[in-house]
Lab assay of single mutants.
Amino acid sequence: QLRFETNGEEQAKKVLEEAKKHNLEAHVTIENGKWVVHVK
């Protein structure tokens, strides 16, 4: 499982879109005010 700390909602959405293009499972959590994308 990969973990990407992003700078906010915009970047998190871009990472999610990329993951979906590659048929990867991804979800976002907010940790300590940071948007974190988890990709399987």
Rank of each mutant, 00 (worst) to 15 (best):
E5W: 08
K40D: 11
V37M: 00
E25G: 05
E17Y: 10
K14Y: 13
N7I: 11
G8M: 10
L2N: 06
T6R: 05
L2D: 04
K21A: 11
L16C: 13
Q11L: 07
V15I: 15
N23W: 07
V39W: 06
H27N: 08
L16P: 00
E25H: 11
V39N: 00
E17P: 00
G33T: 02
L24H: 06
K14M: 13
A12E: 01
E31F: 06
V37P: 00
I30Q: 10
H22D: 04
Q11H: 12
K20S: 08
N7S: 13
K21I: 07
N23F: 10
V28L: 11
G8L: 10
N23D: 07
Q1N: 14
N7E: 14
E10S: 09
Q11V: 07
K40G: 14
E17G: 06
R3Q: 04
W35D: 01
N23Y: 09
V28I: 15
V28E: 01
T29P: 00
N32V: 02
E17Q: 11
E9T: 04
A12C: 09
V39G: 01
A19M: 13
T6H: 04
A12P: 00
N32G: 12
V15R: 04
L24K: 06
H22W: 14
L24T: 03
T29Y: 08
K13Q: 13
V37H: 00
K20W: 14
I30L: 10
E5P: 05
I30T: 06
H22I: 05
K13N: 13
Q1D: 14
L16S: 03
Q1V: 15
G8S: 15
I30Y: 14
L2T: 11
T6D: 03
V37N: 01
L2W: 15
K40E: 13
K40I: 14
E9M: 09
L16H: 03
N23M: 08
V28T: 04
N23L: 07
E5I: 13
T6Y: 14
N23V: 02
E10I: 08
V28W: 04
K13S: 09
L2R: 09
V15D: 02
H22P: 00
K34N: 06
A12S: 05
V15S: 03
V37K: 00
K20I: 12
H27A: 07
R3A: 05
A19Q: 03
K13Y: 14
E9V: 08
E5C: 14
W35E: 01
L2Q: 09
H38L: 13
E5K: 04
A26V: 09
G33R: 02
W35Q: 00
N23Q: 09
K40A: 13
R3K: 07
R3N: 04
K40Y: 15
N7A: 14
V28R: 01
K21Q: 09
A26Q: 01
E25K: 09
E31H: 06
G8W: 10
K14R: 13
Q11P: 04
K14A: 13
E10P: 05
K21P: 00
K20Q: 11
V39Y: 05
E17R: 11
N23K: 10
L16Y: 10
N7Q: 12
K21D: 04
E25T: 11
K20R: 14
E17I: 09
I30V: 12
K14W: 14
N7T: 13
V36D: 00
